[in-house]
């Protein structure tokens, strides 16, 4: 196993990468609360990048700006080289509180993104069924969200995002409302999906272990106003047994290193 590549400094970028999402000079304030200041960031195509930082540092804000759900005060977002300011079909969002329709079945919920985009019923249900299987929910198509556990509901949210075939998946603390056992299972599934689906994932979390476990790249944000304090690329071999990763020395060292960096912000 190789060493973690560590890059310090706010704007320093690694060797040229094929960036699918480029964030340039993004700032955002809510009234007199400055949430983000001068964010410059590239998200490499096909990788899973985590945004990690203390509570309130603007992770959700940055993710929603990338999604086009929140307008930045300054700066630009480009996806596939094109500047965007609104939601678009090349991005799909997975919500912290799942954001499922309580009155619709799993099948309709998963197909809902396609429904909104005007796909015919038969076709969108076929696609939805495929992704319901893909996230391990086969057999639950006709259940309603309130009949599912938190972990299963988030799988519905993930299947919905996968169904629309976006290039970039934006996930805002998708596991925070999921119990510990399910979270571990879900993280493993996400690692598997990342390799099979050939998509770019941008993942917000405030769990260091989670970030190191699943990410190709971790962007550490400083507390408000959020700025980039560090970029870490934990090069962990994920083809091995998941339980071994958690005991891997390199994994544990990286977690420790990030903790040392973040410790100063915690009182």
């Amino acid at each position: 196993m190789r060493n973690a590549t560590l890059r310090k400094g706010p704007t320093l970028m690694p060797e040229p990468v094929d960036a699918i999402v480029e964030v340039r000079g993004v700032s955002k304030s809510y009234g007199n609360v400055e949430a983000l200041r001068g964010i410059d960031l590239d998200f490499p195509r096909g990788k899973l990048t985590s945004l990690l930082g203390p509570s309130g540092c603007g992770k959700t804000t940055l993710l929603k700006i990338i999604a086009g759900l929140v307008n930045a005060d300054a700066g630009t977002i480009s996806v596939n080289g094109r500047t965007v300011s609104k939601p678009g079909p090349e991005r799909a969002f997975v919500f912290q509180d799942f954001a499922l329709l309580p009155w619709a079945t799993v099948l309709r919920n998963v197909a809902f993104g396609l429904e909104l985009r005007g796909k015919a019923a038969a076709e969108r249900e076929k696609i939805a069924r495929h992704y319901i299987g893909e996230v391990g929910l086969a057999g639950f198509e006709d259940k309603y969200p309130h009949e599912l556990s938190g972990g299963m509901r988030q799988r519905v949210g993930l299947a919905r995002a996968l169904s629309v075939d976006a290039d970039v998946l934006l996930l805002d603390e998708p596991f925070s409302a999921v119990d510990e056992q399910n979270r571990r299972k879900f993280q493993e599934d996400l690692i598997r999906l990342r390799t099979t689906q050939n998509k770019t994932f941008i993942f917000v979390t405030h769990s260091i272990e989670e970030a190191v476990y699943i990410s190709d790249r971790i962007v550490l944000l400083s507390p408000r106003p959020g700025r980039i304090s560090q970029i870490i690329e934990p090069e962990i071999d994920r083809s091995v047994d998941p339980d071994r990763i958690h005991r891997d020395k390199h994994y544990l060292d990286t977690v420790e290193e990030i903790w040392q960096g973040l410790k100063q912000y915690v009182d």
């Binding site: 969002f93 912290q96 954001a99 009155w103 809902f112 909104l116």
Partner: peptide, 25 residues
């Protein structure tokens, strides 16, 4: 829930769909 509205917007819901498929229900 605001996230339900955001969900609709992020998947490109039209104004009409937002009202007919989300808000009313």
């Amino acid at each position: 829930s605001p996230s339900l509205i955001e969900m609709a917007k992020s998947y490109g819901a039209t104004k009409r769909a937002l009202y007919v498929k989300i808000i009313l229900w």
